[in-house]
């Protein structure tokens, strides 16, 4: 037993090194006094971070991405969760068809969805391209992701919990709100985060749907035209990494704090 633990944890940490090494390099380059990402390093500088403060367009693009990411992921989480509840809890005609259709956005290259939505917005109905159209596109590709994650959690606990709540006088919707959603909360959170991550990094589809306000990936790819601006983007990437780790540590701290109160949860 002991041997396999150490074998497993060795593998885990090797994989973690594999995953973090390239990112560590990025952080390293963000402090490197040279324009191109290349060895040998030329010296320490914080000028890329200083330049970042003045890069108004870049920060605005980052802000746009966060706004789009938040509302599109929220919408995707709501729509995906409702559909997941229906799919897991009930049998109805066309269920398999719905599952296939809902999974399709995962299967179709996002370039194709982007062009298809461009045709819809500009040639079939008259909608100006904007952050709204980008966000709607992100909802399309995020619905299946949310459904997958939430459905997996729902399937893990028995239906009779809701029934029990209803026996105790809750309406169906009350039971959903008081029993189902709280139990699914970690899954909802995971689904939201995954959708948010996808949205903030989405490029292939957004290219076609963006109006005058750029999202972060759109701005970043367009900046590849200017070799001297690359390190500024790397600096931003480093900050995002540090913030992400901060968020995770914080949520882990929250989870531990809450965990004290829900020790008996599995026995409900």
């Amino acid at each position: 037993m002991k041997r396999s633990i150490s074998l497993g944890s060795t593998y885990f940490w090797l994989l973690a090194i594999f995953l973090y090494l390239p990112i560590f390099l990025l952080v390293l380059f963000s402090f490197n006094d040279a324009e191109s990402l290349r060895f040998p390093l030329s010296g320490f500088t914080v000028r890329w971070y200083q330049a970042l403060l003045e890069a108004g367009e870049l920060l605005q693009a980052a802000g746009n991405s966060i706004i789009v990411g938040v509302w599109s992921s929220l919408l995707a989480t709501i729509l995906g969760t409702m559909a997941a509840i229906a799919v897991v809890r009930y049998e109805f005609p066309g269920k398999q068809l719905l599952l296939v259709v809902a999974a399709l956005p995962l299967v179709i290259p996002s370039v194709v969805i982007g062009v298809a939505l461009l045709i819809l917005f500009r040639q079939l109905v008259d909608v100006e391209l904007s952050l709204l159209t980008v966000g709607l596109g992100h909802v399309v590709i995020n619905i299946p992701i949310v459904m997958l994650i939430v459905a997996a959690r729902l399937a893990g606990f028995p239906t009779n919990l809701e029934e029990a709540a209803m026996d105790l006088g809750c309406t169906y919707w009350g039971a959903l709100r008081r029993v189902t959603l709280p139990i699914c909360l970690p899954a909802l959170f995971a689904a939201f985060l995954t959708a948010f991550t996808t949205s903030v990094d989405e490029y292939a589809m957004s290219v076609f749907l963006v109006g005058t306000d750029a999202t972060l990936p759109i701005y970043m790819y367009s900046q590849l035209r200017f070799p001297r601006k690359l390190p500024i983007i790397v600096a931003l990437g480093s900050i995002i990494l540090v913030l992400s780790i901060g968020v995770i540590l914080f949520s882990e701290w929250l989870r531990r704090r809450d965990a004290v109160g829900e020790v008996s949860e599995p026995d409900v």
Binding site: L21, R38, L241
Partner: peptide, 30 residues
């Protein structure tokens, strides 16, 4: 869950930047 999160965090850094980093690693003078 902490360890799982450790594995997932790298995915939060921009895809483009991660691929560019691999270019640095794999390049001839990399």
């Amino acid at each position: 869950y902490v360890l799982l999160t450790i594995i997932i965090v790298p995915a939060w850094v921009s895809y483009l930047l991660r691929v560019l980093s691999w270019k640095v690693i794999l390049g001839g003078s990399g």
